[in-house]
Design a protein around this nucleic acid. Structure first.
Lengths: 208, 208
DNA sequence: CCAATATATGAAGGATCATTCAGGTTTGGA
DNA sequence: TCCAAACCTGAATGATCCTTCATATATTGG
Protein backbone atom coordinates (compact mmCIF):
# COMPACT_ATOMS: atom_id res chain seq x y z
CA UNK A 1 0.00 0.00 0.00
CA UNK A 2 2.50 2.56 -1.15
CA UNK A 3 0.54 5.56 -0.10
CA UNK A 4 -0.77 6.59 -3.51
CA UNK A 5 -1.97 10.06 -4.14
CA UNK A 6 -5.35 10.24 -2.46
CA UNK A 7 -8.68 10.36 -4.21
CA UNK A 8 -9.17 8.67 -7.56
CA UNK A 9 -11.01 5.94 -5.82
CA UNK A 10 -13.30 5.20 -8.68
CA UNK A 11 -12.71 2.44 -11.17
CA UNK A 12 -10.21 3.57 -13.73
CA UNK A 13 -12.29 2.72 -16.74
CA UNK A 14 -15.67 1.41 -17.50
CA UNK A 15 -16.04 -1.99 -19.11
CA UNK A 16 -17.26 -1.92 -22.67
CA UNK A 17 -17.18 -5.51 -23.64
CA UNK A 18 -18.80 -8.45 -21.96
CA UNK A 19 -15.61 -10.14 -20.92
CA UNK A 20 -14.36 -7.18 -18.94
CA UNK A 21 -17.60 -7.07 -17.01
CA UNK A 22 -17.02 -10.69 -16.16
CA UNK A 23 -13.47 -9.86 -15.12
CA UNK A 24 -14.64 -7.14 -12.80
CA UNK A 25 -17.14 -9.46 -11.26
CA UNK A 26 -14.49 -12.12 -10.79
CA UNK A 27 -12.22 -9.60 -9.12
CA UNK A 28 -14.99 -8.53 -6.79
CA UNK A 29 -15.73 -12.06 -5.75
CA UNK A 30 -12.07 -12.92 -5.36
CA UNK A 31 -11.52 -9.87 -3.19
CA UNK A 32 -14.16 -10.93 -0.75
CA UNK A 33 -12.94 -14.49 -0.73
CA UNK A 34 -9.39 -13.44 0.01
CA UNK A 35 -10.61 -11.00 2.60
CA UNK A 36 -12.40 -13.76 4.44
CA UNK A 37 -9.77 -16.41 3.99
CA UNK A 38 -6.73 -14.34 4.84
CA UNK A 39 -7.88 -11.04 6.33
CA UNK A 40 -7.16 -7.52 5.14
CA UNK A 41 -3.60 -7.70 6.34
CA UNK A 42 -2.79 -10.52 3.97
CA UNK A 43 -4.81 -9.34 1.05
CA UNK A 44 -2.37 -8.68 -1.75
CA UNK A 45 -3.08 -7.61 -5.27
CA UNK A 46 -1.39 -10.71 -6.58
CA UNK A 47 -3.43 -12.98 -4.39
CA UNK A 48 -6.68 -11.41 -5.47
CA UNK A 49 -5.71 -11.54 -9.11
CA UNK A 50 -4.66 -15.15 -8.83
CA UNK A 51 -7.90 -16.13 -7.17
CA UNK A 52 -9.86 -14.22 -9.76
CA UNK A 53 -8.02 -16.02 -12.50
CA UNK A 54 -6.65 -12.87 -14.09
CA UNK A 55 -3.28 -11.20 -14.02
CA UNK A 56 -2.32 -8.36 -11.73
CA UNK A 57 -2.07 -5.98 -14.63
CA UNK A 58 -5.69 -6.59 -15.45
CA UNK A 59 -6.71 -5.47 -12.01
CA UNK A 60 -4.84 -2.25 -12.42
CA UNK A 61 -6.74 -1.60 -15.59
CA UNK A 62 -9.90 -1.17 -13.58
CA UNK A 63 -8.65 0.04 -10.25
CA UNK A 64 -5.88 2.60 -9.96
CA UNK A 65 -4.65 1.02 -6.76
CA UNK A 66 -5.42 -1.43 -4.04
CA UNK A 67 -7.36 1.08 -1.98
CA UNK A 68 -9.71 1.71 -4.85
CA UNK A 69 -10.41 -1.99 -5.06
CA UNK A 70 -11.25 -2.25 -1.40
CA UNK A 71 -13.21 0.94 -1.50
CA UNK A 72 -15.31 -0.33 -4.36
CA UNK A 73 -16.12 -3.48 -2.47
CA UNK A 74 -17.20 -1.55 0.58
CA UNK A 75 -19.25 0.90 -1.40
CA UNK A 76 -21.09 -1.81 -3.23
CA UNK A 77 -22.00 -3.57 -0.02
CA UNK A 78 -23.08 -0.43 1.77
CA UNK A 79 -25.26 0.59 -1.11
CA UNK A 80 -26.99 -2.76 -1.10
CA UNK A 81 -27.71 -2.52 2.58
CA UNK A 82 -28.98 1.02 2.44
CA UNK A 83 -31.17 0.19 -0.49
CA UNK A 84 -32.81 -2.67 1.31
CA UNK A 85 -33.34 -0.52 4.36
CA UNK A 86 -35.03 2.11 2.24
CA UNK A 87 -37.42 -0.42 0.79
CA UNK A 88 -38.20 -1.70 4.22
CA UNK A 89 -38.82 1.85 5.40
CA UNK A 90 -41.37 2.37 2.66
CA UNK A 91 -43.43 -0.50 3.95
CA UNK A 92 -43.24 0.80 7.50
CA UNK A 93 -44.30 4.36 6.89
CA UNK A 94 -47.04 5.33 9.29
CA UNK A 95 -46.84 2.21 11.41
CA UNK A 96 -47.10 2.43 15.16
CA UNK A 97 -43.98 2.27 17.30
CA UNK A 98 -44.10 -1.42 18.09
CA UNK A 99 -44.40 -2.41 14.45
CA UNK A 100 -41.72 0.06 13.54
CA UNK A 101 -39.27 -1.26 16.07
CA UNK A 102 -39.71 -4.82 15.03
CA UNK A 103 -39.71 -3.99 11.35
CA UNK A 104 -36.50 -2.03 11.55
CA UNK A 105 -34.67 -4.65 13.55
CA UNK A 106 -35.71 -7.46 11.27
CA UNK A 107 -34.94 -5.48 8.13
CA UNK A 108 -31.51 -4.63 9.42
CA UNK A 109 -30.75 -8.19 10.38
CA UNK A 110 -31.97 -9.44 7.03
CA UNK A 111 -29.91 -6.92 5.13
CA UNK A 112 -26.78 -7.75 7.05
CA UNK A 113 -27.15 -11.50 7.00
CA UNK A 114 -28.22 -11.58 3.37
CA UNK A 115 -24.61 -11.24 2.38
CA UNK A 116 -22.98 -11.92 5.66
CA UNK A 117 -19.81 -12.98 3.95
CA UNK A 118 -19.37 -9.56 2.41
CA UNK A 119 -20.48 -7.78 5.53
CA UNK A 120 -17.91 -9.51 7.65
CA UNK A 121 -15.26 -8.83 5.08
CA UNK A 122 -16.04 -5.16 5.18
CA UNK A 123 -15.68 -4.83 8.89
CA UNK A 124 -12.14 -5.91 8.28
CA UNK A 125 -11.45 -3.16 5.78
CA UNK A 126 -12.99 -0.40 7.82
CA UNK A 127 -10.19 -0.34 10.34
CA UNK A 128 -7.37 -0.73 7.91
CA UNK A 129 -8.13 2.30 5.96
CA UNK A 130 -10.00 5.45 6.32
CA UNK A 131 -13.59 4.36 6.02
CA UNK A 132 -14.80 6.50 8.86
CA UNK A 133 -16.30 8.94 6.44
CA UNK A 134 -18.06 6.42 4.25
CA UNK A 135 -19.42 4.51 7.20
CA UNK A 136 -20.37 7.75 8.88
CA UNK A 137 -22.37 8.68 5.84
CA UNK A 138 -24.21 5.41 5.81
CA UNK A 139 -24.94 5.90 9.47
CA UNK A 140 -26.26 9.37 8.84
CA UNK A 141 -28.61 8.07 6.19
CA UNK A 142 -29.86 5.42 8.55
CA UNK A 143 -30.55 7.96 11.24
CA UNK A 144 -32.47 10.09 8.81
CA UNK A 145 -34.63 7.24 7.62
CA UNK A 146 -35.39 6.13 11.14
CA UNK A 147 -36.10 9.70 12.18
CA UNK A 148 -38.65 10.10 9.41
CA UNK A 149 -40.37 6.88 10.37
CA UNK A 150 -40.54 7.90 13.99
CA UNK A 151 -41.97 11.27 13.12
CA UNK A 152 -44.69 9.63 11.10
CA UNK A 153 -45.71 7.14 13.75
CA UNK A 154 -49.22 7.84 15.05
CA UNK A 155 -48.47 6.96 18.65
CA UNK A 156 -45.19 8.83 18.92
CA UNK A 157 -44.66 11.71 21.27
CA UNK A 158 -40.93 12.20 21.57
CA UNK A 159 -39.24 15.33 22.75
CA UNK A 160 -36.06 14.54 20.89
CA UNK A 161 -36.52 12.37 17.87
CA UNK A 162 -32.94 12.89 16.77
CA UNK A 163 -31.46 11.27 19.84
CA UNK A 164 -33.79 8.34 19.64
CA UNK A 165 -33.15 7.72 15.98
CA UNK A 166 -29.43 7.97 16.60
CA UNK A 167 -29.66 5.52 19.44
CA UNK A 168 -31.68 3.04 17.43
CA UNK A 169 -29.24 3.16 14.56
CA UNK A 170 -26.37 2.70 16.97
CA UNK A 171 -28.01 -0.26 18.64
CA UNK A 172 -28.75 -1.99 15.38
CA UNK A 173 -25.36 -1.36 13.87
CA UNK A 174 -23.39 -2.19 16.95
CA UNK A 175 -25.06 -5.34 18.07
CA UNK A 176 -25.04 -6.96 14.67
CA UNK A 177 -21.43 -6.02 14.21
CA UNK A 178 -20.35 -7.49 17.51
CA UNK A 179 -22.09 -10.75 16.87
CA UNK A 180 -20.88 -11.08 13.32
CA UNK A 181 -17.33 -10.25 14.13
CA UNK A 182 -16.87 -12.33 17.21
CA UNK A 183 -18.41 -15.52 16.05
CA UNK A 184 -21.31 -15.64 13.74
CA UNK A 185 -22.58 -18.80 15.35
CA UNK A 186 -26.08 -19.73 14.36
CA UNK A 187 -27.04 -19.77 17.99
CA UNK A 188 -25.98 -16.20 18.61
CA UNK A 189 -27.58 -14.98 15.43
CA UNK A 190 -30.93 -16.49 16.26
CA UNK A 191 -30.71 -15.03 19.73
CA UNK A 192 -30.14 -11.63 18.17
CA UNK A 193 -33.04 -12.12 15.85
CA UNK A 194 -35.28 -12.94 18.76
CA UNK A 195 -34.07 -10.29 21.18
CA UNK A 196 -33.11 -7.29 19.10
CA UNK A 197 -36.70 -6.47 18.10
CA UNK A 198 -37.69 -6.65 21.75
CA UNK A 199 -34.93 -4.28 22.70
CA UNK A 200 -36.07 -1.76 20.14
CA UNK A 201 -39.69 -2.10 21.09
CA UNK A 202 -38.97 -1.72 24.77
CA UNK A 203 -36.79 1.30 24.16
CA UNK A 204 -39.30 3.09 21.97
CA UNK A 205 -42.13 2.32 24.34
CA UNK A 206 -40.18 3.67 27.29
CA UNK A 207 -38.82 6.76 25.58
CA UNK A 208 -40.86 9.85 26.17
CA UNK B 1 4.38 -8.90 9.48
CA UNK B 2 6.27 -11.81 8.06
CA UNK B 3 4.04 -14.47 9.39
CA UNK B 4 6.12 -15.58 12.34
CA UNK B 5 5.68 -18.91 13.99
CA UNK B 6 2.50 -18.59 15.99
CA UNK B 7 2.30 -18.34 19.75
CA UNK B 8 5.11 -16.83 21.77
CA UNK B 9 3.01 -13.78 22.22
CA UNK B 10 4.37 -12.95 25.60
CA UNK B 11 7.15 -10.46 26.23
CA UNK B 12 10.47 -12.06 25.52
CA UNK B 13 12.08 -11.12 28.79
CA UNK B 14 11.13 -9.49 31.98
CA UNK B 15 12.65 -6.14 32.88
CA UNK B 16 15.03 -6.26 35.79
CA UNK B 17 16.28 -2.74 35.96
CA UNK B 18 14.33 0.43 36.23
CA UNK B 19 15.28 1.81 32.85
CA UNK B 20 13.94 -1.20 30.97
CA UNK B 21 10.62 -0.82 32.71
CA UNK B 22 10.58 2.75 31.51
CA UNK B 23 11.45 1.57 28.03
CA UNK B 24 8.59 -0.86 27.98
CA UNK B 25 6.24 1.83 29.13
CA UNK B 26 7.51 4.18 26.44
CA UNK B 27 6.99 1.51 23.82
CA UNK B 28 3.46 0.93 25.00
CA UNK B 29 2.61 4.60 24.83
CA UNK B 30 4.28 5.02 21.49
CA UNK B 31 2.39 2.07 20.07
CA UNK B 32 -0.93 3.59 20.96
CA UNK B 33 0.08 6.97 19.65
CA UNK B 34 1.18 5.56 16.33
CA UNK B 35 -1.94 3.45 16.18
CA UNK B 36 -4.08 6.52 16.52
CA UNK B 37 -2.05 8.80 14.33
CA UNK B 38 -1.43 6.42 11.46
CA UNK B 39 -3.67 3.39 11.89
CA UNK B 40 -2.71 -0.24 12.13
CA UNK B 41 -1.84 -0.43 8.50
CA UNK B 42 0.91 2.11 8.87
CA UNK B 43 2.18 1.00 12.21
CA UNK B 44 5.76 -0.11 11.66
CA UNK B 45 8.23 -1.30 14.20
CA UNK B 46 10.59 1.49 13.26
CA UNK B 47 7.95 4.12 13.66
CA UNK B 48 6.98 2.88 17.09
CA UNK B 49 10.60 2.67 18.20
CA UNK B 50 11.32 6.13 16.91
CA UNK B 51 8.35 7.59 18.70
CA UNK B 52 9.31 5.78 21.86
CA UNK B 53 12.80 7.16 21.63
CA UNK B 54 14.47 3.78 21.51
CA UNK B 55 15.98 1.71 18.75
CA UNK B 56 14.20 -1.07 16.94
CA UNK B 57 16.50 -3.61 18.42
CA UNK B 58 15.37 -2.66 21.88
CA UNK B 59 11.80 -3.41 20.99
CA UNK B 60 12.76 -6.86 19.86
CA UNK B 61 14.40 -7.47 23.19
CA UNK B 62 11.00 -7.41 24.79
CA UNK B 63 8.67 -8.55 22.07
CA UNK B 64 9.59 -11.41 19.76
CA UNK B 65 7.67 -9.81 16.92
CA UNK B 66 5.25 -7.12 15.97
CA UNK B 67 2.21 -9.23 16.70
CA UNK B 68 3.38 -9.73 20.26
CA UNK B 69 3.62 -6.00 20.68
CA UNK B 70 0.10 -5.41 19.45
CA UNK B 71 -1.20 -8.35 21.39
CA UNK B 72 0.29 -7.00 24.59
CA UNK B 73 -1.36 -3.65 24.04
CA UNK B 74 -4.73 -5.23 23.49
CA UNK B 75 -4.39 -7.54 26.42
CA UNK B 76 -3.47 -4.75 28.77
CA UNK B 77 -6.45 -2.68 27.72
CA UNK B 78 -8.91 -5.53 27.92
CA UNK B 79 -7.71 -6.45 31.36
CA UNK B 80 -8.21 -2.93 32.58
CA UNK B 81 -11.72 -2.83 31.25
CA UNK B 82 -12.70 -6.18 32.66
CA UNK B 83 -11.23 -5.29 35.99
CA UNK B 84 -13.27 -2.14 36.25
CA UNK B 85 -16.39 -4.00 35.23
CA UNK B 86 -15.78 -6.54 37.97
CA UNK B 87 -15.47 -3.83 40.58
CA UNK B 88 -18.64 -2.24 39.33
CA UNK B 89 -20.39 -5.60 39.49
CA UNK B 90 -19.45 -6.00 43.13
CA UNK B 91 -21.24 -2.81 44.00
CA UNK B 92 -24.31 -3.88 42.06
CA UNK B 93 -24.77 -7.34 43.52
CA UNK B 94 -28.33 -7.79 44.66
CA UNK B 95 -29.65 -4.59 43.16
CA UNK B 96 -32.98 -4.52 41.42
CA UNK B 97 -33.17 -4.60 37.64
CA UNK B 98 -33.47 -0.87 37.06
CA UNK B 99 -30.41 -0.10 39.16
CA UNK B 100 -28.56 -2.94 37.53
CA UNK B 101 -29.29 -1.76 34.04
CA UNK B 102 -28.20 1.76 34.72
CA UNK B 103 -25.17 0.68 36.73
CA UNK B 104 -23.92 -1.65 34.01
CA UNK B 105 -24.36 0.86 31.24
CA UNK B 106 -22.61 3.62 33.13
CA UNK B 107 -19.81 1.35 34.26
CA UNK B 108 -19.22 0.18 30.72
CA UNK B 109 -19.21 3.69 29.34
CA UNK B 110 -16.85 4.83 32.05
CA UNK B 111 -14.49 1.96 31.49
CA UNK B 112 -14.40 2.54 27.77
CA UNK B 113 -14.09 6.29 27.84
CA UNK B 114 -11.54 6.27 30.66
CA UNK B 115 -8.90 5.41 28.14
CA UNK B 116 -10.76 6.09 24.98
CA UNK B 117 -7.55 6.62 23.13
CA UNK B 118 -6.43 3.08 23.79
CA UNK B 119 -9.88 1.66 23.22
CA UNK B 120 -10.13 3.21 19.81
CA UNK B 121 -6.67 2.02 18.95
CA UNK B 122 -7.59 -1.51 19.82
CA UNK B 123 -10.60 -1.62 17.57
CA UNK B 124 -8.10 -1.04 14.82
CA UNK B 125 -5.98 -4.01 15.75
CA UNK B 126 -8.84 -6.40 16.17
CA UNK B 127 -9.56 -6.69 12.49
CA UNK B 128 -6.00 -6.77 11.31
CA UNK B 129 -5.06 -9.81 13.18
CA UNK B 130 -6.69 -12.69 14.84
CA UNK B 131 -8.16 -11.18 17.94
CA UNK B 132 -11.46 -12.96 17.63
CA UNK B 133 -10.48 -15.35 20.35
CA UNK B 134 -9.22 -12.76 22.82
CA UNK B 135 -12.20 -10.50 22.28
CA UNK B 136 -14.50 -13.50 22.43
CA UNK B 137 -13.08 -14.37 25.79
CA UNK B 138 -13.60 -10.90 27.14
CA UNK B 139 -17.15 -11.05 25.86
CA UNK B 140 -17.71 -14.37 27.55
CA UNK B 141 -16.52 -12.96 30.85
CA UNK B 142 -18.85 -10.01 30.46
CA UNK B 143 -21.80 -12.27 29.81
CA UNK B 144 -20.97 -14.32 32.86
CA UNK B 145 -20.74 -11.31 35.13
CA UNK B 146 -23.99 -9.89 33.83
CA UNK B 147 -25.65 -13.26 34.14
CA UNK B 148 -24.68 -13.53 37.79
CA UNK B 149 -25.99 -10.07 38.52
CA UNK B 150 -29.27 -10.81 36.83
CA UNK B 151 -29.69 -14.04 38.72
CA UNK B 152 -29.16 -12.22 42.00
CA UNK B 153 -31.65 -9.44 41.28
CA UNK B 154 -34.62 -9.64 43.64
CA UNK B 155 -37.19 -8.61 41.04
CA UNK B 156 -35.94 -10.84 38.25
CA UNK B 157 -38.00 -13.60 36.75
CA UNK B 158 -36.42 -14.52 33.46
CA UNK B 159 -36.89 -17.75 31.63
CA UNK B 160 -33.59 -17.49 29.84
CA UNK B 161 -31.01 -15.47 31.70
CA UNK B 162 -28.29 -16.51 29.27
CA UNK B 163 -29.94 -14.88 26.29
CA UNK B 164 -30.62 -11.69 28.16
CA UNK B 165 -27.11 -11.40 29.50
CA UNK B 166 -25.75 -12.06 26.03
CA UNK B 167 -27.98 -9.42 24.58
CA UNK B 168 -27.03 -6.84 27.17
CA UNK B 169 -23.34 -7.46 26.63
CA UNK B 170 -23.85 -7.19 22.89
CA UNK B 171 -25.75 -3.95 23.20
CA UNK B 172 -23.17 -2.36 25.43
CA UNK B 173 -20.20 -3.50 23.42
CA UNK B 174 -21.71 -2.71 20.05
CA UNK B 175 -23.14 0.69 20.67
CA UNK B 176 -20.04 2.05 22.31
CA UNK B 177 -17.91 0.65 19.57
CA UNK B 178 -19.96 2.20 16.82
CA UNK B 179 -19.93 5.62 18.41
CA UNK B 180 -16.25 5.56 19.23
CA UNK B 181 -15.22 4.33 15.85
CA UNK B 182 -17.33 6.54 13.70
CA UNK B 183 -16.76 9.80 15.40
CA UNK B 184 -16.32 10.11 19.10
CA UNK B 185 -17.91 13.52 19.13
CA UNK B 186 -18.78 14.79 22.54
CA UNK B 187 -22.34 15.20 21.44
CA UNK B 188 -22.75 11.58 20.45
CA UNK B 189 -21.04 10.36 23.55
CA UNK B 190 -23.29 12.31 25.85
CA UNK B 191 -26.29 11.09 23.94
CA UNK B 192 -25.08 7.54 24.47
CA UNK B 193 -24.55 8.20 28.14
CA UNK B 194 -28.08 9.47 28.44
CA UNK B 195 -29.84 6.89 26.33
CA UNK B 196 -27.93 3.66 26.81
CA UNK B 197 -29.03 3.22 30.43
CA UNK B 198 -32.61 3.76 29.35
CA UNK B 199 -32.28 1.15 26.67
CA UNK B 200 -31.00 -1.38 29.15
CA UNK B 201 -33.65 -0.55 31.70
CA UNK B 202 -36.43 -0.76 29.17
CA UNK B 203 -35.15 -4.06 27.85
CA UNK B 204 -34.82 -5.66 31.26
CA UNK B 205 -38.20 -4.39 32.35
CA UNK B 206 -39.85 -5.77 29.23
CA UNK B 207 -38.08 -9.12 29.18
CA UNK B 208 -40.02 -11.87 30.87
C1' DC C 1 -10.76 -9.67 -43.65
C1' DC C 2 -8.61 -5.57 -41.63
C1' DA C 3 -7.55 -1.99 -38.79
C1' DA C 4 -8.66 0.17 -34.51
C1' DT C 5 -9.84 -0.42 -30.10
C1' DA C 6 -10.37 -3.00 -25.89
C1' DT C 7 -8.52 -6.22 -22.87
C1' DA C 8 -5.02 -9.25 -20.87
C1' DT C 9 -0.26 -10.66 -19.41
C1' DG C 10 3.51 -11.01 -16.01
C1' DA C 11 8.33 -10.01 -15.37
C1' DA C 12 10.85 -6.24 -13.35
C1' DG C 13 11.38 -1.90 -10.71
C1' DG C 14 11.40 0.32 -6.62
C1' DA C 15 9.71 0.79 -1.83
C1' DT C 16 8.73 -0.55 2.50
C1' DC C 17 9.29 -3.40 6.43
C1' DA C 18 10.07 -7.03 9.99
C1' DT C 19 13.78 -8.99 12.06
C1' DT C 20 18.69 -9.99 13.28
C1' DC C 21 23.19 -9.46 15.24
C1' DA C 22 27.71 -7.88 16.21
C1' DG C 23 29.24 -4.65 18.91
C1' DG C 24 28.48 -0.72 21.95
C1' DT C 25 26.90 1.55 26.79
C1' DT C 26 25.00 1.48 31.42
C1' DT C 27 24.05 -0.49 35.86
C1' DG C 28 24.69 -2.61 40.28
C1' DG C 29 26.99 -5.16 43.33
C1' DA C 30 31.51 -7.06 45.19
C1' DT D 1 37.26 0.45 41.33
C1' DC D 2 35.97 -3.26 38.30
C1' DC D 3 33.34 -6.67 35.90
C1' DA D 4 29.54 -9.35 34.58
C1' DA D 5 25.02 -8.90 33.46
C1' DA D 6 21.56 -6.08 31.67
C1' DC D 7 20.43 -3.10 28.28
C1' DC D 8 20.73 -0.54 23.99
C1' DT D 9 22.05 0.55 19.06
C1' DG D 10 21.12 0.75 14.06
C1' DA D 11 22.96 -0.72 9.68
C1' DA D 12 22.30 -4.81 7.01
C1' DT D 13 19.43 -8.69 5.39
C1' DG D 14 15.96 -10.88 3.14
C1' DA D 15 10.98 -10.81 2.14
C1' DT D 16 7.05 -9.14 0.52
C1' DC D 17 4.37 -6.29 -2.11
C1' DC D 18 2.37 -2.48 -5.01
C1' DT D 19 2.61 -0.71 -9.36
C1' DT D 20 4.15 -0.11 -14.20
C1' DC D 21 4.83 -1.01 -18.98
C1' DA D 22 6.11 -3.25 -23.10
C1' DT D 23 4.02 -6.79 -25.38
C1' DA D 24 0.43 -10.02 -26.74
C1' DT D 25 -4.32 -11.44 -27.68
C1' DA D 26 -9.25 -10.67 -28.42
C1' DT D 27 -13.24 -8.11 -30.21
C1' DT D 28 -15.84 -5.25 -33.15
C1' DG D 29 -17.31 -2.28 -36.72
C1' DG D 30 -16.54 -1.31 -41.50
Amino acid sequence: MNRPAPSLLQPRKMPQQARSAATIEAIYTATIQVLLADGVGRLTTTRVAERAGVSVGTMYQYYPHKQALLFAVVERQLEAIIASMLTAAEGLEGSDLATLAEGLAIAWLDAKTADMVASRAIYGIAAEFDLGEVMGNAMKQMIEVIGRLLAAAPDARFTDIGSIAFMLATLLGGSVRVVMELEASQEHLSCLRRELPRVCQAYLAAAT
